[in-house]
């Protein structure tokens, strides 16, 4: 698993629950080191071990923890760079949803060896969508639910999201857009100082 993903999980656990929890997780997962490096590669089994250890330490269901991770990735101040990169996807939340098909490609533009889930959006109506998510590991769908929930907030849209299960390795998420411009949303400028 790419270090960026592992490092994000570590940052999520550290920023949300503190460094003591992260050390307990690292020990329980038998990492053998203190920190993931964002620019190195790791065995996939380590990622699963960390998520399992965190779920067990926090006594939270694995799916809920993954969803929190997704929300964190977009909404935490330490992750501003990622939020900005996602906002390049479109000027409105619906625009952004349609840009999800390009997400793995966009990810690879930035980091060529980053293996992101294949996403396919289909519209059931102009406000109802289904997102099929085929990740390199199961569980990406729950992370995506968290990401989408936070991105809806970011755009100021009101949406209902639901992970409706996994079939043949494809996780399905339903998105019901209740109000495209419910709130002001967070500002986004194409270019920032030093950006």
């Amino acid at each position: 698993m790419h270090g960026l993903i592992n490092r994000s999980i570590q940052s999520f656990l550290t920023d949300t629950y503190g460094p003591v929890l992260w050390r307990r997780v690292a020990t329980a997962a038998r990492l053998g080191f203190d920190d993931f490096e964002a620019m190195l590669d790791y065995d996939d089994a380590l990622t699963d071990a960390v998520i399992d250890a965190a779920a067990s330490q926090l006594r939270r269901p694995r799916d809920a923890l993954l969803e929190d991770l997704g929300t964190y990735l977009v909404s935490h101040p330490n992750r501003e760079a990622l939020r900005r990169l996602l906002r390049f996807g479109g000027v409105s939340f619906v625009d952004f949803l349609h840009s999800l098909d390009d997400l793995p490609g966009r990810g690879r533009l930035a980091v060529p060896d980053l293996d992101l889930p294949q996403l396919q959006l289909s519209a059931r109506s102009d406000r109802q969508f289904t997102l099929a998510c085929r990740g390199p590991r199961p569980g990406y769908g729950h992370v995506m639910v968290g990401v989408l929930r936070a991105m809806a907030d970011d755009y100021g849209a009101l949406a209902l999201l639901d992970h409706t299960g996994t079939q043949d390795g494809v996780e399905t998420i339903t998105i019901d857009l209740l109000e495209p411009s419910f709130a002001a949303g967070r500002p986004f400028a194409l270019a920032t100082r030093g950006g």
Binding site: L4, E37, A38, M39, L40, A81, L82, R84, L85, F88, R106, L109, A110, V111, L190, A191, T192, G194, G195
Partner: peptide, 21 residues
């Protein structure tokens, strides 16, 4: 143009990570 800005920003973020590494 927007893709170019995206790339410039993604590149900066990756460079930042590499600097820290």
């Amino acid at each position: 143009t927007v893709e170019m800005l995206y790339l410039a920003e993604a590149k900066s973020a990756v460079m930042q990570e590499l600097h820290e590494l």
